[in-house]
Nucleic acid binder design. Structure first.
Length: 418
RNA sequence: GGAGAGGUGCCAGAGUGGUUGAAUGGGCUACCCUGGAAAGGUAGUAUAUCCGAAAGGGUAUCAAGGGUUCGAAUCCCUUCCUCUCCGCCA
């Protein structure tokens, strides 16, 4: 959510933002509605003031005068009620429109119509040269008995999978390593609630527009798609002190995604599944663009370092306008090399929001001058499992069908080979 | 699932229809007092929004929404949340 004052004063910028993000949003509709809102409100407030003054008088006046004043106020009240009714209708529409106002992308965000227009800004690592025909992760893992897609589909349906045996041990090795790695970066690990109230999804910007991608319970709660949601909700309606910023959290949670719009995509394997696990970095910091930028680079770099320590070739892209979420100012994706497909696949996404989310969630802090301000927020994937396994397994596959683990993981796994 | 209690400002805690943005106490801030401090004294101490250059003023907010009323923290309804006990249960 943006400040209505800012929107009114910068409607050309909002228009450009919507265009760049390829969103159909007409700021003029909102401004017109806001004009209505302001007019109604100022009218209503004037009459309420009159009402309040008279109400005070009524207590200290003779019975005669009192009944006269009361009948006068009855008339004021009737006209008030009509306007209050109109205002209520206006406010409902106003709030819906306000939730659809896109945040402004940074100048450095490239223009583009889809993720195909994301621009590579960095490439790291040497792509493996196999002396044999490399297999895909499905074949490798199935043969090693560390994944079972057939039974996964039997139990869950489309996109179902079991991880078994060393597949599970490998996940735990990654998780333990990730916990150590990011703890050293001074992130506080958090296991959040995974069933969350709607407010958290609206607050982070996933709702109201993303309803069909989210699992819902019969109580009207939602299953989280990322730990970002509860971690952001954690400080909702709070006033933090400047000294406790930045807050750096490392959330770990299962992630549930319906993938409703992606039925034909990535139909096999561990790339796109309905449930997975993810470590997520979340930061709340002071409301300052440079600070946001600094932490944005930092969280992205953290994940790059983690991948580098695993020795998996990757590249980092800056996402184009169309590939940005409603609230995102700028986003980097880290994509890992997948040998069998001969292309990079996304495993991480780092973005910052300025105060877009914190306005919705009402997360504020008192700055050095004592002024209340909305904090800035940002988040980035630390590491997702099992998606990371796709690249890990394919890049480290051996001619005999085994997987040779990178040194650091072997330490956590207990053996060098699967 | 059953039964009950409750949600008021930074905190504690009054307040059952009008002068209550809200007593009182604590905290905090400034000043006075002091050689300095403690104690004591005085004043101040919410947020949002609108008007205004500012001073200042209007409106709203006592969980949320709705209702009754000229007027609601106070009465009525709905919802949400918290707590306690019982039951069930990893």
């Amino acid at each position: 959510m943006l400040d209505i004052k800012f929107i009114r004063e910068n409607k050309e910028i909002i228009d450009l933002a919507a265009k760049k993000k390829r969103l159909d949003f007409k700021v003029d509709e909102l401004i017109m509605l806001d004009d209505k809102r302001k007019a109604l409100l100022s009218n209503i407030e004037k009459r309420r003031a009159e009402q309040n003054v008279t109400s005070d008088k009524i207590t200290s006046v003779t019975a005669d005068q009192r009944s006269k004043l009361i009948s006068e106020m009855k008339i004021v009240k009737a006209s008030l009620e009509a306007d209050e009714e109109s205002l209520k209708k206006v406010m409902t529409d106003w709030q819906l429109l306000m939730l659809r106002v896109p945040n402004i992308p940074d100048m450095s965000v490239p223009d583009g119509v889809s993720d195909a227009d994301n621009e590579e800004i960095k490439a790291w690592g040497k792509k493996p040269n196999f002396t044999f025909e490399p297999k895909d992760h499905i074949e490798i893992m199935t043969k090693l008995n560390i994944v079972d897609f057939e039974r996964g589909a039997k139990v869950h349906g489309f996109r179902g999978y079991f991880l078994t045996g060393d597949g599970v041990r490998l996940c735990f090795a990654i998780w333990n390593y990730a916990l150590d790695f990011f703890s050293k970066k001074e992130f506080v690990p958090v296991l959040p609630p995974n069933i969350v109230r709607k407010i958290n999804l609206v607050g982070t910007g996933y709702l109201p527009q993303g309803e069909e991608d989210i699992y819902k319970t019969q109580d009207g709660d939602y299953l989280l798609g990322t730990a970002e949601v509860p971690l952001m909700g954690m400080h909702g309606d709070e006033v933090l002190t400047a000294s406790e910023l930045p807050k750096k959290y490392l959330g770990f949670s299962p992630c549930y995604r319906r993938e409703a719009g992606a039925h034909g995509k990535d139909v096999r394997g561990l790339i796109r599944v309905n449930e997975f696990y993810k470590f997520e970095q979340v930061i709340l910091c002071e409301a300052n663009h440079e600070t946001s930028v600094r932490y944005h680079e930092e969280v992205n770099r953290n994940t790059e370092e983690f991948i580098e320590s695993l020795g998996i070739p990757y590249h980092t892209v800056i996402n184009c306008g169309a590939d940005l979420g409603l609230g995102q100012v700028k986003k980097y994706d880290i994509e890992l090399w997948v040998p069998k497909e001969s292309k990079y696949r996304e495993i991480s996404s780092a973005s910052y929001f300025h105060d877009f989310q914190t306005r919705r969630l009402n997360i504020r802090y008192r700055d050095a001058e004592g002024t209340l301000r909305y904090a800035h927020s940002l988040n980035s994937t630390a590491i997702p499992t099992p998606r990371i396994l796709v690249s890990l397994v394919e890049n480290y596959q051996q001619a005999d069908g085994t997987i040779k683990l990178p040194t650091i993981l072997a330490k956590y796994f207990g053996r060098e080979k699967i």
